[in-house]
Design a protein around this nucleic acid. Structure first.
Length: 270
DNA sequence: AGACGTACCTGACCGC
DNA sequence: TGCGGTCAGGTACGTC
């Protein structure tokens, strides 16, 4: 489901739980992608100090030096609701002192929830090797060029590598490459310094616009209040195979790269 | 070391 | 209707 703009939107939607106390915890028996290090029932009586995001991970800081890490995988949803009746695929829920339930639902179970000591967060195996945030000032064209100029792999796959830059998934990389006028088929090492600068600018632009629009709702993404994002109405390539390019009227092509769909215009993107 | 394929899961959709 | 195939927003891991 979610790339960085969707997670950022969810994060903004749940900041109202800050200062709430966790009164009750539900967990399903089903296995998520990785097992929680400790029993999540231990969350009871912790209070929420802060809600943060790193890459596509939501980090909920708690009292007792605990941090809850939530990843939504491909199909996860995190919602706030005044009631909780366990639905299929609900894997975690907690009742808060503001009379709301925070509910984690994930049909495909590619996501996970873990509870660790806040001090150990940087060492968590899912977080320790992450590259910079795309909107961070240290994600520059000099940095990116140094990371890609010896890579044989295509530029699209390269930019989806979390060690290089985080949070840029299949939707937004297609959109950013279109914006930059660069074909997804190019090898990373063939991208010039000038093109790298354009690419960095396009990634920042697309991600910021998507955050402003509340993310993209392709089939089932919803924010913490069950509302849909609207950036999908501005997609210029993603999901538009055989439709006309808005710039040149050429047909948008769909191909497969590393088992993921790429959409592009072979006239506008060189 | 780097490149690439595979695996984890469910559900929606399409063609026969 | 039902069945098999394909596809889906992510990411770690195995193998060459």
């Amino acid at each position: 489901m979610p790339e960085l703009p969707e997670i950022e939107t969810i994060k903004n939607g749940i900041t109202r739980i800050i200062d709430c106390k966790i009164l009750e915890v539900f967990t399903s028996q089903l296995k998520l992608r990785i097992d929680s290090t400790v029993n999540l029932k231990l969350l009871k009586n912790n209070s929420i100090l802060d809600v943060k995001r790193r890459a596509r991970y939501l980090l909920i800081d708690l009292t007792n030096n605990n941090t809850l890490i939530i990843h939504l995988g491909m199909s996860g949803r995190l919602t706030l609701s005044s009631k909780f009746q366990q639905l299929k695929h609900d894997h975690f829920a907690c009742r808060l002192s503001n009379n709301q339930w925070l509910i984690y639902n994930d049909p495909r179970r590619f996501g996970f929830i873990d509870l660790i000591k806040s001090d150990d967060i940087k060492n968590h195996k899912m977080l320790k090797n992450l590259g910079p945030e795309p909107l961070d000032k240290n994600f520059t064209s000099e940095y990116l060029f140094s990371k890609i100029n010896n890579k044989l792999t295509n530029i699209k796959t390269t930019l989806m590598d979390n060690k290089i830059v985080v949070g840029v998934g299949n939707i937004y990389i297609n959109e950013a490459l279109f914006d930059a006028g660069i074909s997804p088929l190019r090898s990373a090492k063939s991208i010039t310094k000038t093109e790298t600068a354009k690419l960095v600018k396009s990634i920042k632009k697309i991600i910021s616009e998507a955050i402003k629009m509340g993310g993209s709702s392709i089939s089932d993404y919803q924010n913490a209040d069950g509302e849909f994002g609207s950036f999908q109405t501005l997609h210029k390539t993603y999901g538009r195979q055989n439709e006309k390019c808005f710039t040149c009227q050429n047909k948008i092509i769909r191909i497969t790269q590393n088992q993921r769909s790429s959409f592009f215009c072979d006239i506008c993107q060189k």
